[in-house]
Design a protein around this nucleic acid. Structure first.
Lengths: 193, 193
DNA sequence: GAAATTTCTTGATCCGGATCAATTTTTTAG
DNA sequence: CTAAAAAATTGATCCGGATCAAGAAATTTC
């Protein structure tokens, strides 16, 4: 049988012994989340830390002006949570919605704490992985404020071309920080002949 | 004597015993960085994890188009590093520059690893703190793509009013993602009578 | 303290994305 | 399969920030 997707993810940047994994995976619960359902919602405390086995979700923020901003998409092999809310039990500023039927596994707060305390490699994984996330967000922040909409779209074509087929266009538009109309025009401009 | 600024920072969100701190602080070295000097530079590996005792720095990114984007300012009590580069020894996408004469303390990679491995409360601190940073960046990303320049400026007035006196205006403009000319006009518009 | 440099301000023009609106295309539901 | 709803396209107009350019103010340097 294939190694577990979670183990593969944990081992990506650092070693993670098989035996620790056996102990770790027992702390998770499985959960099916149907399309469009909200995994957690802005202004309430996030109770679970989820890992995507199958499906795709988006994390987004409702602005005071009434618009929505999509921050990222979580596909297979991604964590989806809001660690600040989860750890400190404070209201989240983000919501998370399934864009497809999703198969997840998740930790509750208690088991997360137990795992972090007793599995040093998991603690280290979190430090390393969080560092990557921060670097990714800083780059994205820089790109979002510097690049033209056309450049942003071409970046997606290059870095995540499968999104074009997997995700509705208006969610990609929100991710890029443009209106759906503008994205439609960008696509027209950048369409191969 | 006042408790050390670093201890105060470590204890902000989680307990950090005095005795562990005595051990921890010994791993640091002091360093003075004069105004305008670069602490680390884009495309090279970040060798140190620094903590600001006195002074102010900015982290920025040079875009391919030749412009600069300031991502954040690090004042007293801030960490300034690029953990992804520091941990994985990969080239950084960011540079860090002192905006004033700065008094820093810093860890090298070896001592960081030792501290992370042997001081569980430091490992936990990093996990918690990194979670905060991620949440902060996500909110900033949302704000930067949603708010008008006027709203962004008023957010600074509200959240970090002292920046107006401490930082050059063109760096604030870069932080907000607008040109210096635009920031000047925003200030004029929002000036009290 | 004067000269030189840097930073900030102000003006005029231009351009591209938002907005509003209507239509077409695609997807979903019965 | 058809009707209804949702998503994507296209058109026209408007507005605000970028850009270019010049001048004023502030800071640095000697």
């Amino acid at each position: 049988m294939d190694p577990h997707l979670l183990l593969k993810t944990l081992q990506e940047r650092h070693h993670f012994p098989q035996e620790e994994f056996q102990k770790f995976i027992l702390l998770f619960q499985e959960r099916f989340v149907p399309k469009n359902e909200l995994l957690f919602i802005q202004d309430s405390v996030v109770k679970h830390l989820a890992f995507v086995l199958k499906g795709c979700l988006r994390q987004y923020h409702n602005t005071p002006e009434g618009t929505e901003r999509t921050l990222f998409f979580a596909e297979e092999g991604w964590w989806c949570g809001e660690m600040d809310s989860f750890i400190n039990r404070t209201p989240s500023t983000m919501s998370m919605q399934a864009l497809e039927d999703c198969q997840l596994i998740y930790l509750n707060r208690e088991n997360w704490e137990y795992a972090t305390r007793t599995i040093p490699d998991y603690a280290l994984y979190q430090i390393i992985n969080r560092g990557r996330t921060v670097a990714w967000l800083k780059n994205r922040l820089s790109n979002m404020t510097t690049e033209t909409p056309d450049e942003k779209y071409r970046r997606i074509l290059k870095e995540s071309p499968h999104w074009i087929n997997r995700l509705p266009q208006y969610h990609i538009a929100s991710y890029l920080g443009v209106t759906p109309e503008t994205l439609s025009r960008i696509r027209k401009r950048n369409r191969p002949l």
